[in-house]
Design a protein around this nucleic acid. Structure first.
Ligand SMILES: [Zn+2]
Ligand SMILES: [Zn+2]
Ligand SMILES: [Zn+2]
Ligand SMILES: [Zn+2]
Lengths: 150, 150
DNA sequence: CCTGCAAATGATAATAAGTCTCATTCGCTA
DNA sequence: TAGCGAATGAGACTTATTATCATTTGCAGG
């Protein structure tokens, strides 16, 4: 049994929730996916593995994964919410190209603690840090941003 | 004529867009509103001033205000996108209470330049910085987070 | 000050992410 | 292995945002 599966199992037991076949399949798909994904993509990924999990179950399970600390909301694009698994990845910020959508991840490093302290100084216990930079990547600047976005 | 109106007028001329009565009214409403607002709230604000501007026009005008640099997307709540006017305000981050929704703004200060440099080192020209901390404010921690959120 | 036309508007239909409902199925505990 | 409460799937529903299109309006040029 993988580590993340053990973590999930413990979380679910603590919560009095059941580990069904669907939830297990979702967990596996999430940890097979090392990039950012939205619900629709996860759904397709599951279908292509031959798993029959309804969209409703996906929408119901993702909050559990987030609450367990295994997954987090990575970013919101114009239309959808994109997620990523957290376990096994360092805390990072995202740099997104406004034109082509390319995303670079950079570790937060010291900044995480600095920001938690900042929050504490204002009376907050910080649980999540969302840091996103948006601009143009070099190729898009050189091409004059004239092409159709990928 | 206010400064922001002049900025908007120049931007619109450069863009070959017209300054209609509706767009002017939206601009005024946006700059009378010193907090965060979503489209629906702006719509109500305009109605209460006796301005008849359709929701469609609001949705069409806000991107122009954002592109002009006068307004920016402040944050996404679960359902809606919230905006704030930028001109006249220092760049800041948001600290949001997960339970009651209270928001504190803290100036970015040096961090803004640090982050722009970080982006540059990865090949990006950074145009927007979104930094949001989420957690629990002191009152919500003390009340045990047991109440219904405001 | 008028004219003409492209751009803007309003009303409303369309789209789509996410949520809710409820009858049926399934994990889990004993 | 039985029984029950939780979980599921199918599809209805909600709602923020976008698209459509006939009508109106800002404004450059005369
Ligand atoms: Zn990431
Ligand atoms: Zn790019
Ligand atoms: Zn703000
Ligand atoms: Zn609070």
């Amino acid at each position: 049994m993988t580590q993340y599966r053990r973590i999930f199992a413990e979380f679910m037991k603590r919560r009095g929730a059941k580990i069904t076949h669907g939830r297990g399949a979702i967990l596996e798909a999430v940890f097979d996916n090392h990039g950012h994904f939205d619900v629709e993509e996860l759904y397709e990924q599951l279908k292509s593995r031959g798993e029959r999990v309804s969209l409703a179950t996906l929408y119901r399970t993702i909050p559990l994964l987030v609450e367990s600390g295994l997954v987090r909301q990575a970013m919101r694009t114009d239309a959808t919410t994109r997620y990523e698994h957290v376990w096994g990845h360092p805390r990072h910020l995202h740099i997104v190209c406004k034109h082509c959508g390319k995303v670079v991840e950079v570790e937060l490093g010291d900044m995480a603690e600095t920001l938690r302290t900042l929050g504490r100084n204002h009376g907050y216990r910080v649980e999540e840090i969302t840091l996103c930079l948006r601009g143009l990547c070099r190729p898009c600047r050189q091409k004059g941003e004239s092409d159709v976005p990928a």
